[in-house]
């Protein structure tokens, strides 16, 4: 009997602790599939974030190091500079990446470090209980914006891909979504392209993934996917924002 689908080699058998309906399960698997397809599992060093995915090293069967909150791009810089032949990527949520870690991201991108950033955007601070994040939508209710985010006092959400696009050292930026199967397939292709860019030594690449967070959005899994399709995507359009490969 032919095998048409199986657990990627780069994933462990450990039961995941993520909530039902969380996007991390799919995102972890897509990264693992890409690492397998490029056949670089034994050369990969990932940098895990602080957030729900802090324990990502339990789920991937390649080397993963931890970093302080937001500092993954700086840690990745150090690793890649010492081991330029390793495949180095960070995996970060929106709080980690563009809130506390905004500065590290900016300068890693500006130096054009030859790493890949996998950006998991769920528009809230997940692990700490659903507070407003830089990517929270206008009008979105969170535990720190109970009346809905007001751009007049809280500013507008930050579009990270668009923000980084003017930086010469940044070579590939794409935003994808995990709300529908067709989009998940596109997400996998985007990750392939970003990791290939690293293998081809082109420079900095980032893939932003719109992911569901049913627990902190106060929705069930089904509703949370609809929220991405109907609301999140309107503010964060999917597609290639920069391609200088």
């Amino acid at each position: 009997m032919a095998i048409v689908f199986k657990k990627p080699r780069s994933m462990t058998d450990t039961h995941m602790h993520y909530c039902p309906g969380c996007g991390h399960g799919v995102a972890h698997r897509l990264v693992a599939e890409v690492i397998d397809e490029l056949n670089v599992r034994e050369e990969t060093i990932a940098v895990a974030p602080v957030g729900c995915a802090v324990l990502a090293y339990d789920y991937w069967d390649f080397d993963v190091t931890e970093s302080a909150h937001g500092r993954a791009p700086a840690v990745a810089t150090g690793i890649k500079r010492v081991f330029p032949d390793k495949v180095v990527f960070t995996y970060q949520g929106d709080g980690d990446l563009i809130s506390i870690g905004g500065n590290e991201l900016l300068h890693c991108a500006n130096r054009g470090e030859n790493i890949t950033v996998v950006f998991i955007n769920n528009t809230v601070y997940g692990m700490t209980g659903g507070q407003m994040a830089p990517t929270t939508l206008p009008g979105q209710k969170t535990t720190t914006t109970p009346l809905g985010r007001d751009p007049a006092t809280e500013g507008h959400p930050i579009r990270v891909c668009e923000l980084l696009s003017s930086i010469p050292g940044v070579k590939y930026l794409e935003r994808v979504s995990l709300d529908k199967t067709a989009n998940i397939i596109k997400a996998r292709k985007a990750l392939m392209k970003a990791f290939q860019a690293q293998l081809d030594k082109k420079g900095f690449s980032l893939v932003e993934m719109l992911t569901p967070c049913p627990t902190n959005w106060g929705m069930n899994a089904h509703e949370s996917l609809k929220f991405i399709s109907n609301d999140v995507i309107k503010y964060f359009p999917t597609g290639v924002i920069k391609d200088e490969l």
Binding site: H17, Y18, C19, P20, C52, V54, L55, M127, T215, N216
Partner: peptide, 8 residues
């Protein structure tokens, strides 16, 4: 308690 939002 652990970092997990649910269970743990």
């Amino acid at each position: 308690y652990g970092a997990e939002m649910r269970g743990g």
